[in-house]
């Protein structure tokens, strides 16, 4: 028994010495479960790839799917005396107290991907996506094609979700404003953004002999579902086809369809926030101030859209999610 105790003590001492030697910037990163989606998996990987010892960090990672576990992890990090805490919150509410504790302890907090309902003074900065902008970028791309008529089959995502509202908003606005932009039909893939529902919507439009030349699907899976209906009915699509296919999320398989010319556009919803946070921390460490924050202490993550005519294999490797 004594031997074991001695061994454990020795191990602890070695570890302490090692951590003292490591001398990196101590950060604690709280994320969500990577199995949740391709987006989250890429996001977790981005964080682990960026906050490495070689990059000058001593990072501890926690992935927890629920708010209470995340809050426990945050308290643990505060007790450990980390210098920065990075959080993608499972729940927007309930963070005030912990953020205040962190602030009192002089710990900088960065929010990424998801906002919390707390006073902006309680966190250093937040790196988030602008869903409205994703829709606007896609609609601007569509407009740049200069078609005579825009007859759109609009397949919405989970109704009421931030991504759906942003991606639908820009298109709805455009269709109201322009006479030659019409939504021929609209439907939803439901809460799971179901490709099968999208396929049925496209199939019903084809069976009714609706004339459409654009499929605006609010994620890649639903675009794929709609394309399956086109293929079955013998309607060509893509770069040289009759129907323009648009998707969102930039999964690798979708970008490959773009590269093959089967689809036309894919809008990014970037899970890559690590680099921006890394730069901000380096600035703070160097005693500089962070610039470019809006009134909510946010930095909007730059997101792009890919065009089938200009996409390269390199883009797929860099920006593609999943396998």
């Amino acid at each position: 028994m004594k031997k074991i105790l001695a061994l454990v003590l020795a191990l602890v001492m070695v570890l302490c010495a090692a951590s003292a030697l490591a001398d990196g910037i101590k950060v604690g990163i709280i994320n969500l479960d990577p199995a949740e989606s391709g987006y989250r998996e890429a996001n977790v990987k981005d964080m682990t790839d960026t906050f490495t010892a070689e990059n000058g960090y001593e990072a501890t990672f926690v992935t927890a799917p629920t708010a209470d576990k995340q809050l426990d992890a945050a308290r643990g990090f505060i007790a450990d005396g980390v210098k920065y805490i990075l959080v993608s919150a499972a729940d927007a509410d309930g963070w005030d107290e912990v953020l205040q504790e962190a602030k009192d302890a002089g710990i900088g907090v960065f929010l990424f991907d998801r906002m919390v309902n707390a006073d902006p003074s309680l966190y250093t900065a937040a790196v988030v996506s602008d869903m409205d902008k994703e829709g606007e970028t896609a609609v601007a791309w569509l407009e740049s094609l200069g078609l005579e008529e825009y007859k759109i089959l609009h397949i919405k995502g989970q109704l009421g979700s931030a991504a759906q509202l942003g991606r639908s908003g820009a298109l709805d606005k455009k269709c109201e404003a322009e006479a030659n932009w019409t939504i021929v039909r609209e439907g939803t893939g439901g809460d799971s953004w179901d490709p099968e529902e999208a396929r049925k919507i496209a199939q019903a439009a084809i069976d009714a002999n609706e004339d459409f030349n654009i499929i605006y699907a609010e994620n890649d899976g639903m675009a794929q579902g709609a394309v399956a209906a086109l293929d079955k009915a013998g309607i060509t699509h893509g770069v040289d086809g009759k129907v323009i296919v648009m998707g969102f999320d930039c999964n690798k398989y979708a970008l490959r369809e773009l590269l093959a010319g089967n689809w036309n556009y894919d809008g990014q919803c970037s899970p890559f926030q690590a680099k921006l946070i890394d730069e901000m921390i380096k600035k703070l460490e160097a005693g500089e101030a962070i610039e470019g924050l809006n009134e909510l202490n946010q930095i909007i993550n730059n997101e792009v859209g890919f065009d089938a005519k200009t996409i390269t294999q390199e883009d797929i490797d860099t920006y593609g999610l999943g396998e």
């Binding site: 199939q203 084809i206 069976d207 009714a208 002999n209 293929d231 079955k232 009915a233 013998g234 060509t236």
Partner: peptide, 24 residues
Amino acid sequence: LGFFSITTRINNDGNMVLSGNLIS
């Protein structure tokens, strides 16, 4: 009465297929 009509189409593999609401 298009809901009940069944037509034929040539799919993207070049084969003839039946199409229409009832088939769907």
